[in-house]
Design a protein around this nucleic acid. Structure first.
Length: 343
DNA sequence: AGCTATGATTGAAA
DNA sequence: TTTCAATCATAGCT
């Protein structure tokens, strides 16, 4: 800088124009007519270089004077061009970064969990689905359901308010920087492209903050979800009446203990449990029965007698001869039992 | 505390 | 998708 200054001073042989002259068209015209464009540019450059050595007031005045100089636009655009070709071409490499896959993942998850996206719909749908999968007695699941939904709504609210804050801060900061750069672009070579680039840099910085927000929101949802899933583990045994209904169906359909979808729905309704719980129960029952028929024989006999008695009652009431209640043909082996219900 | 019963989950198979 | 088989984790009993 010192060398440059000295060099330019040497070239022009001038220490700078009097302030009043710089912006004065007349003096410029005078100089122009003298045929000293080289010296003119040298002057300006020299003044720019020397500006930092001046007092604040002087520098301000000089700045203003230079801004009004007729050579300014031309010089400015040349400097912009030079800058564009040197500094910016290096940075140009990381231009146009593709949407962060991490952010996309987080976005998708937040959307799926109903944190982002449509206001109530997604959230309650997700919670409902989770609750449906959870099962449990209707009261339990609805309690957990509303609990889950409330917590999720809380997370959603925090997330949105934080996101709003973030967006506000981002746009405020961007505006601030843009204004600053625009302001500065009057005195130093800043091209609109460079401003754009700066905005992109700011947005990238802010997007990392956004990612943190999204990440911690995801974590919160995951924790909530795992707690919710843990709660599902805290099972309750089905009540006696429900177990009875299920066992009755099972043992009276021992030859083919695979209730149809409709039958499952009906059983679910009767027992006050979900269809998937009915499916679970039958899945467990089939496998456990098959594994140890002996253990279940007593139970089987009990229900066989029970259904036989029921059937008898029904047929007596209808005064009609109905088909036997236990169609044990194929499927799972039926227990052997005597009419008195013993082996 | 230890044991069994039982509802739920998971991964493979059909 | 449904079912099977193994397994988990808790309930509930002794």
């Amino acid at each position: 800088m010192d060398d440059q200054t000295r060099m330019m001073t040497g070239l022009t042989g001038l220490g700078g124009l009097p302030q009043g002259d710089v912006g004065d068209p007349d003096s410029v015209r005078k100089q122009q007519s003298l045929g000293q464009p080289q010296q003119d540019i040298g002057d300006i450059l020299q003044q720019i270089m020397a500006i930092t050595d001046e007092s604040l007031d002087e520098a301000q005045a000089r700045k203003h004077a230079l801004n009004c100089h007729r050579m300014k636009p031309a010089l400015f655009s040349v400097l912009c061009e030079i800058k564009e070709k040197t500094v910016l071409s290096i940075r140009g490499v990381q231009e146009e970064d593709p949407p962060d896959p991490q952010i996309m993942r987080l976005d998708n998850m937040l959307l799926a969990e109903g944190v982002s996206g449509p206001e109530k719909g997604g959230g309650s749908a997700a919670a409902a689905a989770a609750a449906a999968a959870a099962g449990g007695s209707p009261t339990d699941s609805s309690i957990e359901h509303s609990d889950y939904r409330a917590k999720l709504a809380q997370i959603r609210q925090i997330y949105h308010s934080e996101l709003e804050k973030y967006e506000q801060a981002c746009s405020e900061f961007t505006n601030h920087v843009m204004n600053l750069l625009r302001e500065q672009s009057r005195t130093r070579p800043i091209s609109p492209k460079e401003i754009e680039r700066m905005v992109a840099i700011i947005h990238r910085k802010f997007s990392s903050i956004q990612m943190q927000l999204k990440q911690s929101t995801c974590e919160a949802v995951m924790i909530l979800r795992s707690r919710f899933l843990d709660a599902r583990r805290k099972r309750r045994n089905f009540n006696k009446q429900a177990t009875e209904v299920l066992n009755e169906y099972f043992y009276s359909h021992l030859s083919n203990p695979y209730p149809s979808e409709e039958a499952k729905e009906e059983l679910a309704k009767k027992c006050g449990i979900t269809v998937s719980q009915v499916s679970n129960w039958f899945g467990n029952k089939r496998i456990r029965y098959k594994k140890n028929i002996g253990k279940f024989q007593e139970e089987a006999n009990l229900y066989a007698v029970k259904t036989a008695v029921d059937a008898a009652n029904v047929s007596a009431q209808a005064s009609q001869a109905n088909s036997p209640a236990t169609p044990n043909s194929g499927g799972y082996p039926a227990p052997c039992y005597t009419p008195d219900g013993r082996l």
